[in-house]
Design a protein around this nucleic acid. Structure first.
Lengths: 207, 207
DNA sequence: TAGATTGTTAATCGATTAACAATC
DNA sequence: TAGATTGTTAATCGATTAACAATC
């Protein structure tokens, strides 16, 4: 990263969108793209795209635009997904089940490699090629399998406990689907993906 | 709504979080809460909470705080969830399956009442008490059952087509789980909930 | 009354957009 | 060279936070 200004969360939320479109262009054999073209497809101001990218280095060529393949490599590097990134899912209910089947969509080196639950009836059951493990095995599995991210898909009343376990196990980032604000005093990034809240926000815009 | 200043999306994203906590307080029998208390639990600046709420009216009492039950009613009204709000899910794969089972978690009058797919093999199959219907029936079902929101859980290549169908059917808001930016010239709100993008953003914060 | 807490104004901080010199 | 497009500065716009008078 060329610059030292701090990067806002808004920028980081847009980078995956850029990456997804660039990958699409690459698949179509397109080698160069301008901020103008990207912006009009993605509904983002071209100046915004240039500024977002420029915060990390000079990736484009004046008068030409951006080399698709080169830019893909740069964004993947920025996002830490130029290395294999292993993920654990905790909660083998319907949602955990669905997410565990997501590996085909998680390109770019992200991979769900373990799934946990507390219900003994589920232990050993297979989901998407993964055996459901007891939560008690979390810490050891995280260590031996070098898992860095966790996804929480347990009911709300269990979510804080699971978060504590994940953090104690050395997980570095959490994506929480449970409808509860998690608390920690550790340096762990926690993002939220709560369906109920999303739908309620959406409902505001009716009429 | 007492004021006419325009409300930012950030405010609308926080209201469901406030509502969730207030509901929790109500269940615990707590009748009054201050912005201070809410803020410290939810990790939100108390001034922010007061300003968010004040944009819609004077809901609190100086020196006292907010009446929990009263504020719940107000926020539900603001979010349009003081009426039953019906939702259709399009895409009966793993994720659509999981979401269709979400009705128990969708309190506050939101309800998934129909699920659609294009695979004839799935027609008639039951998920969470709902029979999977052919996409061809979408328009009629939306009209007769007064469905106002749509959730897209189809693969990326089908998402734009499904969005067009939903909009044509008269849907007023869409929550899209497919990893693609949807385009429309109609006045329809489209929100995004893309797991891959969320995980990629999360990955940035590693180290 | 004294203490607490709102609603709101002003101050600050941050993010987006416009404009354009540099340059491919 | 002429046209196109970046990187970046300046201008604008918007959101967050602090502070405090009003008042329960």
């Amino acid at each position: 990263m060329a610059k030292t200004e701090k990067i806002s969360e808004a920028v980081i939320r847009r980078l995956p969108i850029y990456l997804r479109y660039l990958t699409h262009l690459q698949e179509m054999g397109i080698t160069t793209v301008s901020s103008q073209q990207m912006g009009s497809t993605l509904d983002v101001n071209p100046a915004q795209i240039r500024k977002d990218l420029a915060a990390f280095g000079e990736f484009g060529k004046k008068g030409i635009g951006y080399d698709v393949q080169y830019l893909i490599g740069k964004i993947r590097h920025i996002l830490n997904i130029d290395q294999e990134l292993r993920i654990a899912v905790v909660g083998a209910g319907h949602l955990g089940h669905a997410i565990s089947n997501y590996n085909d969509y998680l390109r770019d080196n992200m991979r769900i490699v373990a799934i946990f639950d507390t219900d003994p009836q589920k232990f050993g059951e297979e989901i998407a090629g993964l055996k459901i493990q007891p939560l008690a095995e979390l810490k050891q599995t995280v260590k031996t399998r070098h898992i860095r991210l966790g996804i929480i898909t347990v009911p709300d009343f269990a979510a804080q406990m699971v978060a504590d376990e994940l953090i104690d196990a050395g997980i570095e980032g959490i994506l929480n689907f449970a409808p509860i604000t998690l608390r920690t005093d550790k340096e762990v990034r926690i993002d939220y993906a709560d369906l109920t809240s999303s739908l309620q926000s959406l409902a505001y815009y009716l009429n």
